[in-house]
């Protein structure tokens, strides 16, 4: 574990179901990431990529092992503490954009910050405008998701993941739903954000072309890390 690791897990396991139906999906994961790292998470379908990202994102608890991030023992933390931690330090991008249909692009980008603060502030608005600018959608700030293309929506989702200045963004097949050109656009964006803002990214993908754009490559097979 390097000194500047932002998170580290060891012996991490995850089982679903009980008794006969029990399945062990993660079978002892040891992994850590350094600040500013950008890694691709590869593996066949069903190997446990989404499960691992969900646990690292504190959206689900592991069944066993340790999980520390920024000096916090997330295995021991309460649900409320994990929610606060998530909103403060973690960003998410999913395969489907999951933007709120009633909000404009700008309001969607502000959403995670507004949820934490209980209101929308001028500072948030400025930061969200900057981020929309960074993802090349300054002119779409007042559009609703339904009026944008798939690639544009996913770029809004990337901007949204960054609003709280997270140390780590977990992206689960962020380009899985996009054509090659839009996918490249989103990946360029992620790379430049990773370089300028020093935000770490962990990106699951089936696409070698996408993985090739990431300096680090982590491979998962049947619930075990076979290469990191």
């Amino acid at each position: 574990m390097s000194a500047e690791a932002i998170f580290s897990v060891s012996g991490l396991t995850k089982r679903f179901g009980e008794g006969e139906a029990e399945v062990l999906v993660l079978k002892g994961i040891d992994l850590s990431m350094a600040a500013g790292e950008m890694a691709a998470l590869l593996g066949p379908s069903g190997s446990g990529k989404s499960t691992l990202l969900t646990i690292l994102g504190t959206l689900m608890r592991a069944s066993g092992g340790t999980h520390d991030m920024l000096g916090v023992d997330l295995m021991q933390a309460s649900e409320g503490q994990r929610t606060k931690f998530r909103s403060k330090h973690l960003g998410f991008v999913f395969q489907f954009h999951h933007l709120l249909p009633d909000l404009s692009a700008l309001e969607n980008v502000m959403m995670p910050a507004a949820c934490a603060a209980g209101r929308e502030t001028r500072a948030m608005r400025e930061r969200a405008t900057e981020l929309l600018d960074a993802v090349g959608l300054a002119d779409r700030r007042d559009y609703r998701p339904s009026a944008m293309s798939g690639g544009q929506r996913q770029r809004v989702a990337v901007a949204r993941a960054l609003i709280n200045n997270p140390v780590l963004v977990l992206a689960d097949e962020p380009t899985g739903n996009l054509d090659r050109q839009s996918a490249d656009h989103v990946m360029d964006l992620i790379r430049s954000i990773n370089q300028t803002m020093a935000t770490s990214f962990l990106i699951s993908t089936h696409d070698e072309h996408i993985a090739g754009q990431c300096p680090r490559r982590i491979e998962l097979l049947d619930g075990r890390i076979v290469r990191s």
Partner: peptide, 16 residues
């Protein structure tokens, strides 16, 4: 459901 889920994932409290 998915709207609510995404808000919870992005840090919205149950109270909100």
């Amino acid at each position: 459901q998915s709207e609510i889920g995404i808000m919870r994932a992005m840090g919205a409290s149950k109270g909100l």
